[in-house]
Computed example of a mutant assay.
Amino acid sequence: MVRKRKFALAGVVASVAGLLLSLVSAGVSSAHGAALMPGSRTYLCYKDGRASTGQIIPQNAACQAAFNQSGATPFYNWFAVLRSDGAGRTQGFIPDGRLCSGAAQIYNFNGFDIARADWPVTHLTSGATIQVRYNKWAHHPGRFDLYITNSSYNPSQPLRWSNLVSTPFSSVVNPPQSGATGSEEGHYYWNAQLPSGLSGRHIIYSVWTRSDSTETFYGCSDVVFDGGNGQVTF
């Protein structure tokens, strides 16, 4: 009887372990990257909220609002704002007001669509050249396009496609990469010249289109053009 119980317990442990492994693998396989510089909302809110205990405890008020709406899961999965059926589509595919969440299917990123003027922000200089860094949680070939908001953008209103300049200010295909895939530090990188004549708060909107599948990644990076050189304010 004791031996049977031991075998039964071992079977349960193995089953649970297998289930956990499959869940973790599913999460990683569907999560591939986001902007590190200038940091995306999801990444900077993860950085803001990550406690030494591993919990997500937001300090920034906008990150807290996102947490209240969407919970902790999208913070841990900051690299998973994607549409598996995106195929590089933008306007007419992702609805107005859902740009920052990418109308994502896997995790609930809706909290990151909240219109606020106090998201963590990267300080930049209009017209300057910066090194863009985009995390490679998983490596995929493809094209990166960066858009900037126009003069109609108002942080207190939901982001619409009409708030973006229609032509990307930076585009690159299969840029070089550095660091380990599947780590926070691993990333693609390239130099981009920022648009000139801008001041105040804006959003840099990123679209990463895989060339080996229809999967497409979307992201909002809140920036302020005030003469900065990439400093982040939480």
Rank of each mutant, 00 (worst) to 15 (best):
I56P: 07
Q131P: 05
T149N: 08
Q131H: 02
P120H: 04
L124Q: 03
V24D: 12
L146P: 00
W119R: 03
P95L: 03
L19M: 07
Q59Y: 07
V232L: 14
V24S: 13
T214Q: 12
L44D: 01
H202A: 10
A66Q: 06
I106Y: 14
H140K: 11
T42E: 13
P120K: 02
H123T: 10
G54S: 05
G197W: 02
D96C: 04
G49W: 00
I204P: 00
H140S: 10
V165I: 12
Q91H: 07
G228Q: 06
Y43L: 13
P175F: 00
G49E: 03
S152K: 12
F75P: 08
Q59L: 11
P120R: 04
K6H: 10
Y205L: 07
G18S: 01
S25C: 03
A87P: 04
R160T: 15
P95R: 05
Q64W: 09
C100W: 09
T233S: 15
A61M: 04
Y134R: 06
G39V: 11
A65D: 12
D118R: 02
H139F: 15
N191P: 03
L194R: 01
L164G: 02
Q91C: 03
S15A: 15
V81F: 07
L159E: 01
Q55L: 14
V172K: 00
I203A: 11
R116H: 09
Q55V: 04
I203T: 13
A115H: 05
S206Y: 11
L124Y: 14
G111A: 09
W208K: 06
P141E: 12
Q64N: 11
K6F: 12
K136N: 08
C100Q: 03
T129R: 06
G228E: 04
S213R: 06
P176L: 00
G71R: 01
S178M: 09
L159D: 00
T233P: 11
L21S: 13
A14E: 00
Q131M: 04
A87T: 08
T73S: 14
D96F: 03
Y188N: 06
S183L: 02
T167H: 05
D222F: 11
V207I: 12
P141W: 07
T73K: 12
N154A: 12
